[in-house]
Amino acid sequence: MSEKKIMLEARNVDVFYGEFQAIKNIDMKIKEKSVTAFIGPSGCGKSTFLRVLNRMNDYVEGFALRGEIEINGEKIYRKSVKVEELRKKVGMVFQKPNPFPKSIYENVAFGLKIQGITDKTFIEERVISSLKQVALWDEVKDQLKKSALALSGGQQQRLCIARTLAVEPSVILMDEPTSALDPISTSKIEELLHELKKKYTIVIVTHNMQQAARVSDDTAFFYMGELIEFDKTDKIFTNPSMEKTENYITGRFG
């Protein structure tokens, strides 16, 4: 099998919040159409690193970044890069489902409309395909005008993923996307990841190591702002190279 193209590359990335260095000299290459999991204890820098991948930290007080991050060959911290353009290519799904207080249809169509797209047929097709991709279509097709807030937590999260997919990003970042969901909804999202990676590059932060093991192709273990180990997920969970990784995944940390 041919080696997959690199979709996302970080080179010597340091991140500071004022005096505090949250990320220390991280190099990482993430392959396209794969799922990469970030694991590590709270405060290890995994969420910070995820958020720098679509410049979510730009307005955090004291935030400073050194080094380079390239997505699909483009250096995303260049001044010429428009953040809103970047976020079309790099979508984000958060820990808690955060649908807008609008209808199901409007939630998915929202990203397209703010891009200035007015072609109703185009929007409708995209809404339907997005809802189908997240396996929500059959559940909501007869109630598209209903408020998104009336959906269950699991359905809301899949709706948020559909909203992200509607603008056809290359990369989807997920920050603990199932931590607020029950096991069945979690399982649906995990199944979805297997489908979505055929088309998208997915990076997921999770505290659930079994989830990382189940859904990802590669796993990165962060500790105190450093990338301790980054390897194939089966290697990380059967025979990690670094003692710190072994201690963390076996629960013997500290």
Partner: peptide, 9 residues
Amino acid sequence: HNPVASDLR
């Protein structure tokens, strides 16, 4: 316990 790494081995 879902053992991993050396525990799993």
